[in-house]
Design a protein around this nucleic acid. Structure first.
Lengths: 192, 192
DNA sequence: TGTAGCATGTAAGCCGTTACATGATTGA
DNA sequence: TCAATCATGTAACGGCTTACATGCTACA
């Protein structure tokens, strides 16, 4: 009962709202997943497919989204569109809810803190590897950013993409500096 | 059955390992929570008290940690110490597991992407507020960093603290730039 | 004497994942 | 025709939170 919406629900509702403004023919769960994979994923999470279908069923139940062209013929695809109620609910959330402080789950930093338990070489390899992976991620996001272009209607998504790029640049820079710091003192002065 | 350890379990085991190297009289769940609040919290999560007690019971059950001075007299405090097995397990995890890529859950960025649904003033206020909160968090972490000092034994925790400070600086800088960008075009050029 | 902090735990429940199960459509 | 991709869902379960419940200790 009382079915509140999670932040992920609002995020998906937000994706439906974007669709509404552009094509307005609705989105399938599958499409929503793809969209999540190259937007939400960078600053929130990309929910599992099963989760997306669950959320969609919930949004429908609450009247915030509705299936459009519900399985035309015997086609299995169900497209969902945001409703007026859904729009209102989203807007209300945006206007009145306090954004939580960001949560960063950083397995590399978590391991680095216990660096004294490892060989110096292993720690350095871990950082070097991380820097590389950050570069790959950055490129993925760079592609997204390029697709967004400089159109005024997409300036907010573009800003968020730029935010992400800035984050990755910062990560690479910090890790690089730490790596240099470790390389400067190969084993460390054992004495005080 | 099969009881694997979560990353959070390893994080707590790591805290017990630090204690072992310094005082070795063990830590209570309560102390572990306090420690988490000003270390883990910045790059992982600070688990709820109930979660910590659950983890401690699990580590005990698996022989990775053990209660020391188990409730001396009728005192309720139970101090836990990492075992040799626990040490080995932790080391094994550090050496062989691939660190996941960091996950950033960023409610401010999530809202910003839907900025076109809000008044320009509201978006700007949200960013300004965020910048302020980042400053507060940074100060909390700065205090932790200062406590760590420059002692060689604590160089890894110090590095991670510096990492966090770098992250906060980057966040503040990015948000500041975006804010300036929004202020530069008060309403935006409605036409193309 | 009472309240803040120390200390420990259980129960209910949310959010999300992986594994499983199924089937249609498109193009090589 | 066969594989990749599109498409949808259920079941089981893990990890974590909040709410609840309890009690001791130090100190103002």
């Amino acid at each position: 009962m009382s079915e509140g919406l999670s932040t992920t629900s609002y995020a998906l509702l937000g994706l439906l709202a974007f669709d509404d403004e552009t094509s307005r023919h609705g989105m399938t769960g599958y499409e929503l997943k793809q969209r999540s994979d190259y937007t939400l994923r960078f600053y929130w999470v990309s929910p599992a497919m099963s989760q997306i279908y669950t959320e969609l069923a919930k949004l429908d139940r609450l009247g915030l989204a509705e299936p459009v062209t519900a399985s035309k013929g015997r086609r299995t695809a169900r497209r969902y569109r945001i409703t007026a109620d859904g729009h209102e609910t989203l807007l209300d959330w945006l206007r009145t809810s306090e954004p939580e402080f960001p949560i960063l789950k950083h397995p590399v930093a978590l391991r680095l803190i216990m660096g004294h338990l490892l060989d110096p070489g292993q720690v350095q390899a871990m950082l070097a590897d991380y820097i590389e992976r950050v570069g790959e991620r950055r490129q993925d996001l760079r592609d997204v950013r390029d697709m967004l272009g400089d159109a005024h209607e997409r300036r907010f998504p573009a800003m968020v993409a730029d935010w992400g790029l800035g984050f990755y640049d910062s990560e690479a820079e910090i890790a690089q500096k730490l790596l240099a710091r470790l390389e400067a003192e190969p084993d460390g002065p054992q004495g005080s």
